[in-house]
């Protein structure tokens, strides 16, 4: 996952400090176009910070962010890279709980600059992916939906922007196992349509069932990167990271 020319998104030597406290240290990760990547690691490892940086939502205190090989570090920190086709589902989903499902989804397109007709087209498409409860509750406030339904709406809102790259922080958080599979199946389906997907996940074992590449992050540093199909890599992950966690 190093400096290959085909990387869609790449963090190069990224460092990030929150008021002096080091959250990320010399992190270099990348994802090629069309890949499904998991950044796995324990709580507080720096996953969320890395997700925010890769989405361009915050600017790293050092290092560079590359999109399609072009340096976009300077563009980060304001509206993210929404118009460049990058959508982030941040930690805690950050849906607008008081707004309806319809309003939340519509805003996803509005924020990306889509017109009215285009928004309606995307809306019809995205509702096709939503579970029935969400489809039937278009005018319900999002806060009244279940966790699983909210996660689907969060994915839907991101898709309304027609992204080329979707970054999802903790897609499994607070969900029952059956719903986690549902979410990952949706992401895998999304990837089939050519969208590059990146998850930032504490639940490494679940993520590795679906992704093709992964990186392990611990205490703000990348410990390992590899292909999910590589048995050695999986074993290493089990020993090094999962072992300590699952003990």
């Amino acid at each position: 996952m190093s400096q290959d020319a085909t990387s869609m998104i790449e963090a190069a030597g990224v460092e990030h400090r929150y008021e002096g406290v080091l959250a990320l240290h010399d992190v270099s990760v990348s994802a090629p176009a069309g890949s499904f990547t998991a950044i796995v690691g324990p709580n507080g490892a720096g996953k969320s910070t890395l997700a925010l940086i890769l989405a361009g939502a915050i600017r790293p205190t050092a290092g560079r962010l590359l999109l399609d090989g072009a340096d976009v570090t300077e563009r980060a920190g304001r509206r993210g890279l929404v118009e460049a086709g990058v959508a982030l589902i941040p930690e805690g989903r950050r849906l607008f709980g008081q707004l309806t499902v319809d309003e939340n989804l519509t805003l996803g397109a509005f924020g990306a600059g889509a017109g009215r007709a285009e928004t309606a087209r995307r809306l019809a498409e995205v509702y096709g992916l939503m579970p029935e409860a969400v489809r039937k509750g278009k005018d319900r406030a999002v806060a009244t939906l279940s966790g699983g339904e909210q996660q689907m709406v969060a994915i839907g809102r991101a898709l309304m922007a027609r992204p080329r790259l979707v970054l999802i922080d903790e897609p499994s958080l607070g969900l029952a196992p059956i719903l986690i599979d549902k979410v990952y199946e949706t992401l895998a389906m999304l990837r089939q349509t050519g969208v590059t997907v990146m998850v930032f996940e504490q639940l490494a074992v679940k993520a590795l069932q679906y992704v093709d590449r992964f990186a392990v992050i611990e205490r703000g540093q990348i410990r390992h990167q590899g292909l999910a199909s590589d048995p050695d890599a999986r074993e290493m992950l089990r020993m090094g990271y999962m072992g300590a966690e699952a003990a």
Partner: peptide, 23 residues
Amino acid sequence: TAIGVAMRASAEDHFAARIIGIR
């Protein structure tokens, strides 16, 4: 209106509004 809904969204969560591209 979309801009009005965006204003309500931004009032509820400035950060979330910003990251989905609302100026």
